[in-house]
Design a protein around this nucleic acid. Structure first.
Lengths: 150, 150
DNA sequence: TATTGTTATACTCTATAACTATA
DNA sequence: TATAGTTATAGAGTATAACAATA
């Protein structure tokens, strides 16, 4: 049996739902500011992460994975293509399909995003001990997996 | 010394920054759907939480606490006032100021939001053990406090 | 003149719907 | 006729700037 009780929060402010929502918004804003010099927004990074995780993909499937409208994938991909971060190639077997894949430059950009995100992690987690950090990473990873996110 | 190493994630997808951003957005969307029947949006709840936590307050200060523009507090407060969730009273000492405070109905609404958020917590944390839940709640609370959030 | 709140306006993000090309 | 992608349009959310009332 556990030494730690799962005490329910006394107010909405203490729920994981509310806290994740508020913190997520604040953190996303800071991440957006950190990657602005790269001419990227969080959703661009999200698309690149999908390509990095699942390999090259077709736009409609990427839209489903990201939980956004297909038309949004078009504009995100347009921008990333202009930056030289992704390549768009027609599927020879079905010429309606566009296959998106990360370029070398795209992988470099993603690496740069990683560095910047790690710097924000350091600020964010400055007051958190190593054990708690590890639990946080593991639990957030599990929640993301449950939600079908990369 | 700790038994658990603070292993750095190998890609941006594994950073706390990225995961909080993505999860926060997803969770906020679900919370928004859950409170829609109450004619509330997450920012309305945020404003009520500020009033519940810090007591009655002046609009400009509330805007700073929430990290939003003062003009947004006007429209949020307009809506909450129409619902009968808050009262707006002119400060007698400085008649420029409006003092916002939760009404009885506002506290009831907040209680209802709490119930709905707890239900989402149960879904969200279904696969997480009690110890991990407790750590998650504590760490998220700490991060929120560090960020000056309620 | 400075400050609080409000109103007017504009911008960003994103979705829905119409359209094109291919199957 | 159905599907992948694109373009056009519209709506939500929010900020900035102009304005009004009070200090």
């Amino acid at each position: 049996m556990s030494m730690v009780n799962d005490v329910k929060p006394a107010s909405v402010a203490g729920t994981v739902t509310f806290r994740l929502g508020v913190l997520g918004t604040a953190v996303a804003d800071r991440f957006a500011a950190a990657i602005q010099p790269l001419d990227l927004k969080p959703k661009h990074v999200g698309l690149m992460v999908v390509l990095d995780t699942r390999g090259a993909g077709v736009q409609l499937e990427i839209a489903r994975t990201m939980g956004v409208a297909p038309s949004l994938v078009v504009s995100l991909a347009d921008h990333l293509e202009r930056l030289g971060a992704i390549a768009r190639v027609r599927d020879a077997g079905d010429r309606r399909r566009q296959l998106l894949s990360l370029t070398k430059h795209g992988r470099e950009l993603l690496r740069d995003c990683h560095t910047r995100a790690q710097a924000l992690d350091e600020e964010l987690l400055a007051g958190i001990g190593a054990d708690d950090r590890a639990v946080l990473r593991r639990v957030l990873g599990g929640l993301a997996a449950d939600a079908g996110l990369p």
